[in-house]
């Protein structure tokens, strides 16, 4: 409890009221502020600029305004950095869902190019409506874009990894590893052996994704002993082409 300070006492004229009210009235301003902070850590942060225009707007009007911002994620992000109230409303999970439903078509953030030996993500747009080139990079360079929702297939050594770009329950977006397929267990035994020895000799990766057929979940994997088609659901493999 804070030290009694008669100058800061709130509502001392209420002293002869009921006990409960007196207790509230006897709190110092600081204590009331403290209580506010503790009581509702998730509720709207207190804005000191309460008299200004945007802060006086009711939440539902502000939300309506934010819904009409362009779909490029940097726009919402920058708006969320204006003040705590804006951030609170914009980062709300329900709002994000409404925003996606409202705009329907997600923005094109960039393209993947494999014109060089290492496939790269090339952002589209001019700053500030532009994400960083590193935004969609993965540790392993050998990957290709996968499906209609944002997905990636990546090769790390002899494992085929399927990543998805997702928003978690706290509204944080990032790459989530959905599935790892050990190619050694899927491809014929002699290929696995060949590849594991190859791995030591050559600098090239033992297997590479050549392409995929989305509707069939069919991946074409290049190996030194030929090209294999792997069906993701059944995990059946079939040699498609021999070098």
């Amino acid at each position: 409890m804070k030290v009694y300070d008669p100058n800061k006492r709130v509502g001392s004229i209420l002293n002869d009221l009921e006990v409960a009210e007196t207790l509230v009235a006897n709190l110092t301003l600081d204590e009331i502020d403290d209580m506010r902070d503790q009581d509702s850590p998730t509720s709207r942060p207190h804005c000191p600029s309460f008299h200004t225009m945007a802060n006086m707007l009711p939440d539902d009007i502000l939300i309506e305004i934010f819904l009409h911002l362009p779909t490029h994620p940097t726009c919402l992000l920058r708006a969320s950095l204006v003040c705590k109230q804006w951030r609170f409303l914009i980062t709300d999970h329900e709002f994000i869902q409404r925003f996606c439903a409202f705009h329907q078509t997600p923005p094109v953030l960039g393209i993947f190019t494999n014109s060089t030996s290492i496939p790269r993500f090339l952002p589209i747009g001019n700053p500030p409506e532009c994400v960083t080139a590193g935004a969609f990079s993965l540790p392993d360079p050998y990957w290709q874009a996968e499906d209609g929702g944002l997905g990636l297939a990546a090769m790390t050594g002899f494992n085929l990894q399927l990543w998805a770009w997702e928003i978690d329950s706290e509204g944080v977006t990032g790459w989530v590893l959905r599935k790892t397929i050990e190619l050694g267990a899927v491809l014929p035994l002699e290929v696995s052996c060949l590849l594991s020895t190859d791995n030591h000799l050559a600098r090239r990766p033992p297997a590479r994704i050549l392409g995929l057929v989305e509707e069939d979940d069919l991946f074409f994997i290049w190996t030194a002993s030929g090209v294999f088609a792997i069906q993701l659901k059944s995990l059946q493999s079939k040699k498609a082409y021999e070098d």
Binding site: P45, H46, C47, P48, S49, T52, M53, A54, N55, R78, A79, L81, V82, C83, K84, W86, R87
Partner: peptide, 14 residues
């Protein structure tokens, strides 16, 4: 964010 604060008269409370 800074330009928006200026436009709408919002104080940065971060």
């Amino acid at each position: 964010p800074e330009q928006n604060r200026e436009t709408f008269g919002i104080v940065n409370d971060f």
